[in-house]
Every structure is written in structure tokens, then in C-alpha cells.
Simulated assay, not measured.
Amino acid sequence: MTPTTVRIAIIGAGPGGLACARVLQRHGVPVTVFDHDAGVRPRGGVLGLPVTTAQEALHAAGLHDRFAALARPEGREVRLLDHTATVLFQHTPGPGADRSEIDRSDLRRLLLDSLAPGTVRWNSYLRTLHPLGDGRHRAEFDDGHSETFDLVVGADGTWSRVRPMLSDADPHYTGVTFVESGCEDAATRHPDVARLVGGGSMWAESAGRALFARREGGGRIRVYAAFRGSQDWALDAGVRMADTDAVRAALLDRFAGWDERLLALLRANDGGFANRPLFALPVPHTWTHTPGLTLLGDAAHLMSPFTGRGADLALLDGADLARALAAHDDPDEAVRAYEAAMLPRAAAAAGTAARASADALAPDAPRGSLHQLRAVFGDPQP
């Protein structure tokens, strides 16, 4: 590949897009990232990144040492409970475990700081792409300017503006909604909740409902109430999401009969609640190879978050695409090689995520989740 003759645009400054840009720049390949945000929006959540995938991508980006300095080896404990707060499964990894936790905001800052100044153009919303017939595309942005690129990479997430150029598939509502809340300084302000959650992630399941909780940096615990129903469940119930007390009452009603130690996750939140209906692409999601275009991350394989593979796969996608582009003289051959590896990998992960979602919210839950945890970790005693 001749870096000076190929113009590459990455649409979306998420983990996958930024990782792709970083690895390209390490190989001397110019790239521009466009993102519709202003660059200041906080990105919450914690990520568990496996050694064999995401951390491999960080090695390719030359950032693994800096990642290791930010990551937390703790936070990897896994607990599964039933609605009586009985611990059914508990796994605490020993030294040398293959995952490390990092806050999403820290990972984003790490990737952004590694890029050449001016790589990311904020406040750049892609309005449309026009194929020029030779593999190139003219990208038009909402500020009125346009540019022509030899390769446009859609790394722009759930509602990708690039995906429709490749695929007729639209994300569909999975029938599952998460309602997010959180506890600040949990060890001090909410010690009972902190003890219940333990040193990593905890989830409790029963009869189509689930409560998830996970430790984050700064002593925060993020909480999700999960259930099947309309994505507009609050509206249907006559509740406004801005009315914290009303939402809490509606959730407590949905989880009636659960142990009070678990209901404390809904009572003890600091701040309000946020509605997070879950969307996914068909499994498998594929497309006919089109010169000058490709996808990565959620734009390519949006899936249920139950297995926590979204950012993990996006990072690996970005690194793999960049390495393929650096290794091939012909960018189209590089994209073909990347897609040939990425699509089956994504399909397998999406299938696993869909099954995990079904297990967690099944009528006989937590039976399926317990079976899966034992298959992955063995059968430790709680």
C-alpha cells in the first residue's frame, strides 16, 4: 500500500475507529476520523478486555503498557444469584487471569492521546455518501463540506450512516430493555450494596427478570434492571423517566417478591434512571463486498451486551483492518482479507450473546446462565 496515494476516512471515534486510526498511523498510513460529537461527551461504563483479543489489538497499537498502567486487575469476580439473593456461582480469578478492567473513558483518552494532532475532526456529521464508480466515495457532511476518499470505514455504531451503503439490515429491538442507574462511593455510602456485588460483577435472575451490577473506577457501581417488554415501557405505565421516584416505584413493582438485599440496588441509586432498550443486527450480519467501503464494531455486528464483547471485538476489528491495509499493496484486497476473518468471528460472538440474553431472561432463569458459567469456569463452590 502506498500511503501517500490512498485517502482513508473513519466515521466514528469509538474504540474501534480510534484503534484503527492508531495502528494505521504506526504504519505511516494517513487517516482522518470524523465524529458527530464535540469530543467532550463523557463515556461511561467499564470494559473487561481479554488478552487474546482486545489486548492483542492494544499491543498492535503500541499501547499495551499504557493500558496496563490504567487497567485494574481486580474487578473480575463473577457472581450469579437467584431472586432470594442466594449465591449460586462465584468465580474469583487468580493471578495471571486473562482479563483486565478499564473504564471506557480511560480507554478513550488513551487512544485519543496516541493519535497525531488533528486526526479527529469533531462536530462532523456524515450526511451521505456518493459512490463515484471507481471504488471512491464522496462524503458530504452536515456543515456543507465534502471530501472524496478511496476507503470509508463505518465505525459509527448502532445507527451507522455507512451501513446502508452495504447492507439492507437495520438494528431491531430485541424485546429486552435495560434501565440504568448507579451508586456513587458505594463502599462508604452503600456498604450493603457493595458487599452484595463483591469485587467485580454480579447478576441475579429469576423468571424473565434480572438485576446486574458492576464495579467501576472511583468506587462507583453501575446497575441495570433488565426485563422483557416494550421499549416504551415507562410511557406505557404512565411514568416519565425524569421522575426518579415514579420510575423506582415502577421497577420495584416489576421486581416484587425479590429479596430486599437485591431491591436495594434499585432503592440506593444516586441520581436518576436511564432507559436503554437493546438493539441488535441479524445473526449473522453479512454483506456483499463493496470496493471502497467496510464496517467495524457495532456498525458491523451490533449484538446483545450480555457477554460484554462489543468494545473487545471493535478494538480487534480496528487493529485487524489497519494491519491488513498496511500489509497489502491493494486496499481492496486488504478489506477483503479483513472481512473474511471478521464476519465469521462476529457471527459466532453475536450468536453466543443472543443465547446468553435468552438464558438470563428465560422463564427458568438462572438455570441456563448457571450452566454456561460452569461450562466456562468450571464448578467452584460459592
Results as ranks from 00 to 15, higher is better:
Pro3Asp: 08
Thr4His: 03
Ala13Lys: 00
Leu18Ile: 11
Gly28Ile: 07
Val29Glu: 12
Pro30Arg: 11
His36Phe: 15
His36Gly: 12
Gly39Asn: 11
Val40Cys: 13
Arg41Ala: 15
Pro42Met: 12
Gly45Asp: 10
Gly45His: 12
Gly45Trp: 03
Pro50His: 13
Val51Arg: 14
Thr53Tyr: 15
Thr53Ser: 15
Gln55Ile: 15
Ala57Tyr: 07
His59Val: 14
Ala61Phe: 06
Arg66Met: 10
Phe67Tyr: 15
Leu70Met: 08
Pro73Ile: 09
Glu77Met: 09
Leu80Cys: 05
Leu81Glu: 13
Asp82Gln: 04
His83Asp: 14
Val87His: 13
Phe89Glu: 14
Pro95Thr: 07
Pro95Lys: 04
Gly96Glu: 08
Ala97Asp: 13
Arg104Met: 06
Arg104Tyr: 13
Ser105Arg: 13
Asp106Val: 04
Arg108Trp: 09
Leu110Phe: 07
Leu112Cys: 09
Ala116Tyr: 10
Pro117Glu: 06
Pro117Tyr: 03
Thr119Asn: 05
Thr119Pro: 00
Trp122Gln: 01
Asn123Val: 06
Arg127Ser: 13
Thr128Gly: 02
Asp134Asn: 04
His137Val: 00
Ala139Ile: 01
His145Thr: 08
Ser146Tyr: 01
Glu147Val: 03
Asp150Arg: 00
Val153Thr: 02
Gly154Phe: 00
Ala155Tyr: 00
Thr158Asp: 05
Trp159Asn: 02
Trp159Arg: 05
Arg161Gln: 10
Ser167Phe: 06
Ser167Gly: 06
Pro171Arg: 08
Val176Ile: 09
Phe178Val: 07
Val179Cys: 11
Ser181Ile: 01
Ala186His: 14
Ala187His: 15
Ala194Thr: 11
Arg195Pro: 02
Val197Phe: 03
Gly199Val: 06
Gly200Lys: 10
Gly200Thr: 04
Gly200Trp: 04
Trp203Lys: 01
Ala204Asn: 06
Ser206Met: 08
Ala207Phe: 09
Ala207Cys: 03
Gly218Val: 12
Gly219His: 13
Ile221Val: 11
Ser230His: 09
Ala234Glu: 11
Leu235Trp: 12
Leu235Arg: 15
Arg240Trp: 14
Leu251His: 07
Phe255Pro: 08
Asp259Gly: 03
Leu263Arg: 04
Leu265Glu: 03
Asn269Pro: 10
Asp270Glu: 07
Arg276Glu: 10
Ala280Lys: 01
Ala280Thr: 03
Pro284Lys: 03
Thr294Ile: 05
Leu295Lys: 06
Gly297Val: 08
Gly297Glu: 02
Asp298Trp: 02
Leu302Ser: 00
Met303Arg: 11
Pro305Ala: 12
Pro305Ser: 10
Arg309Lys: 15
Asp312Met: 13
Leu315Trp: 05
Leu315Ser: 05
Leu315Met: 14
Asp317Ile: 12
Ala324Cys: 14
Leu325Ile: 10
Asp329Ala: 15
Ala334Trp: 07
Val335Pro: 01
Arg336Asn: 02
Ala337Trp: 01
Tyr338Leu: 01
Tyr338Thr: 02
Ala346Ser: 09
Ala349His: 01
Ala349Cys: 01
Ala350Asp: 04
Gly351Leu: 14
Thr352Gly: 10
Ala353His: 04
Ser357Asp: 10
Asp359Gly: 05
Leu361Lys: 03
Pro363Ala: 09
Pro363Arg: 00
Ala365Leu: 00
Pro366Asp: 02
Pro366Gly: 01
Arg367Leu: 10
His371Ser: 12
Gln372Trp: 12
Leu373Val: 08
Ala375Lys: 13
Val376Thr: 14
Gly378Arg: 03
Gly378Met: 11
Asp379Trp: 04
